[in-house]
C-alpha cells in the first residue's frame, strides 16, 4: 500500500497543497513586517550604535548602601517619587539561615538600624535596576512596539506609543518596570541613554563613590568592562528564566532574589 504510486502521488499532492497553504500564510502582509529592517541601509543616517554593545557590572563586595545612585537617578530622570528606576536592597542573613531583606524607600535615604533577629553572619547591599536582557520578556509582550531594544542593547520605552496596558510590567521578572502615574505609560531604567550616547556614564555610575557600579561598552576592545565580565566570576539575576540579562553581579549570594 505504501508503494502504491497513486497513493503516493495523492500524498505528494496533499503535501504540495499544504505547502502552498503555508506559503500563503507567510504571504499575508504582516503590518510592520516590511519595515522590520535587520540589515540597516548604510546610506541612512545611522547613529554610531553598531559600534557599541553596553553592559553593566555591579560588584556587590563594594556597595556600601549610601543610596547616592537612587537619588541621582531620581533627579536625572525625574522619576516619580513612589517608583524606582534603580534601587538598593539590604540582605542580612543569620546563622540560622533566616534572610532579612529590606529596601526602605528603595534605599533612597540610605539604611539604618538592624532589622535582623539573631546573629547576622552575612550582610550586604544589592543595587538593582533594569537588566536590559538580551532575551527580553518585556519587549516580547509589548503589543505596539512601544518598548524595544536598540542595537546597543538598551531597552527603551516610547512614551508616545505606549498604550499603558501594563503587560510589560507583568512580564518583567525583576520588578524593574512600573506605570508612571503622571504619564500613564510604562517607565524603566534606560541606562541613561541620553548620557551614554554623549560619552557620559549613567547617572548612578557617575555618582557611585565606591566603584560598585560599572558601565561599559563590550564592543570597545579597550574598555575595562570587557575584561571584568570575561575574567570575573559573575552571576545574573534569575538565570533560570533565560532572559540573558546584561547586568552582571560580582560577589553574588545564593540568598539574592
Amino acid at each position: 500500500m505504501h508503494n502504491d504510486p497513486k497513493n503516493r502521488r495523492e500524498f505528494l499532492k496533499a503535501c504540495a497543497a499544504a505547502g502552498a497553504a503555508g506559503v500563503w500564510v507567510l504571504l499575508i502582509p504582516r503590518p510592520g513586517a516590511a519595515q522590520r529592517v535587520h540589515h540597516i541601509d548604510p546610506s541612512l543616517q545611522v547613529p554610531d550604535w553598531m559600534d557599541h554593545y553596553y553592559a553593566y557590572v555591579i560588584d556587590l563586595n563594594k556597595c556600601i548602601g549610601c543610596g547616592n545612585c537612587v537619588r541621582a537617578c531620581k533627579r536625572e530622570n525625574k522619576v516619580h517619587e513612589k517608583f524606582f528606576r534603580t534601587w538598593v536592597e539590604r540582605y542580612q542573613i543569620t546563622d540560622e539561615d533566616h534572610v532579612y531583606v529590606e529596601s526602605p524607600n528603595g534605599g533612597h535615604d540610605g539604611f539604618s538600624g538592624n532589622v535582623a533577629h539573631g546573629k547576622v553572619t552575612r550582610s550586604f547591599f544589592v543595587p538593582k535596576m533594569c537588566n536590559h536582557c538580551r532575551n527580553t520578556p518585556c519587549t516580547q509582550v509589548c503589543p505596539v512596539h512601544a518598548s524595544y531594544q536598540t542595537p546597543e542593547g538598551v531597552i527603551l520605552v516610547d512614551k508616545k506609543r505606549c498604550i499603558g496596558c501594563a503587560y510589560c510590567v507583568q512580564a518583567c521578572p525583576y520588578g524593574s518596570r512600573f506605570i508612571d502615574p503622571r504619564t500613564h505609560t510604562a517607565d524603566k531604567c534606560t541606562w541613561c541613554y541620553h548620557r551614554i550616547t554623549k560619552g557620559l556614564l549613567p547617572a548612578c555610575v557617575t555618582v557611585c563613590p565606591t566603584n560598585t557600579r560599572r558601565f561599559g561598552d563590550l564592543k570597545d576592545e579597550d574598555d575595562q568592562i570587557r575584561e571584568l565580565i570575561h575574567n570575573a566570576r559573575s552571576s545574573v539575576l534569575k538565570p533560570d528564566l533565560n532572559t540573558e540579562p546584561f547586568c552582571f553581579y560580582i560577589g553574588f549570594d545564593r540568598a539574592i532574589r
Binding site: Q35, R36, V37, L44, V46, P151, K160, R161, H194
Partner: peptide, 16 residues
C-alpha cells in the same frame, strides 16, 4: 516607524 527596526525611530532621537 521601522526606519531602523520595529519601533518609532524618532523616539531614539528624542531620548538622545
Amino acid at each position: 516607524f521601522g526606519k531602523w527596526g520595529a519601533y518609532r525611530a524618532d523616539h531614539i532621537d528624542e531620548e538622545r
